[in-house]
Deep mutational scan, measured.
Amino acid sequence: VFVDDHLLEKVLELNAKGEKRLIKTWSRRSTIVPEMVGHTIAVYNGKQHVPVYITENMVGHKLGEFAP
């Protein structure tokens, strides 16, 4: 499973602090992992960042699938 390192670091850091804030990313190719559930990730679609709230059903899919 591929997840960009910088994105995973941000998610794990927020989980350690117990925070839930918006994470901006250009990494549409990253796979959604269970650690991301409950976070809102702003995924770049080529024009703007689209906020995507991550749920359990999204695990295993790519971030780009949810930012048309």
Rank of each mutant, 00 (worst) to 15 (best):
R29F: 14
K62E: 14
K17N: 09
P68D: 08
W26Q: 12
V37M: 14
E13P: 00
N45P: 02
A42D: 05
E65K: 10
E9H: 14
V3Y: 04
V1H: 14
G64I: 07
L14E: 02
I32V: 11
E13V: 07
F2E: 06
L63Q: 00
K17H: 08
R29T: 12
A16N: 10
V3T: 06
W26M: 09
A16F: 07
E19N: 04
T31V: 10
V3C: 06
A16E: 09
V3H: 04
G38H: 09
K24E: 08
L22Q: 07
P34S: 12
W26A: 11
L22H: 05
R29M: 11
K47P: 05
H61D: 11
E13L: 07
R21N: 12
I54K: 00
R21E: 15
R28G: 06
I41T: 01
I41H: 00
T25P: 01
H49G: 05
I32F: 02
K17V: 08
K20A: 05
M58V: 09
V59I: 14
P68V: 10
I41D: 00
V43S: 02
N57E: 15
F2G: 07
A16C: 09
D4F: 02
G18F: 05
M58S: 09
H6A: 14
W26T: 12
G38P: 00
E56K: 11
I41Y: 01
T55H: 15
K10R: 14
V33A: 05
N45Q: 08
L8Q: 02
A42S: 09
V37P: 02
N45M: 05
L12D: 04
D5K: 15
L8H: 03
L7E: 00
L14S: 04
K62C: 11
V33N: 04
H61K: 10
W26D: 14
R29Y: 13
K10L: 15
T25F: 01
K62W: 07
L7M: 03
L22C: 10
M58R: 13
H61L: 10
T25M: 00
V37N: 10
P68T: 11
T55F: 11
K47F: 09
A67W: 02
H49L: 06
D5T: 15
F66Q: 07
R29A: 12
T55S: 14
V59T: 11
N57M: 15
H61Q: 13
L14W: 04
S30G: 03
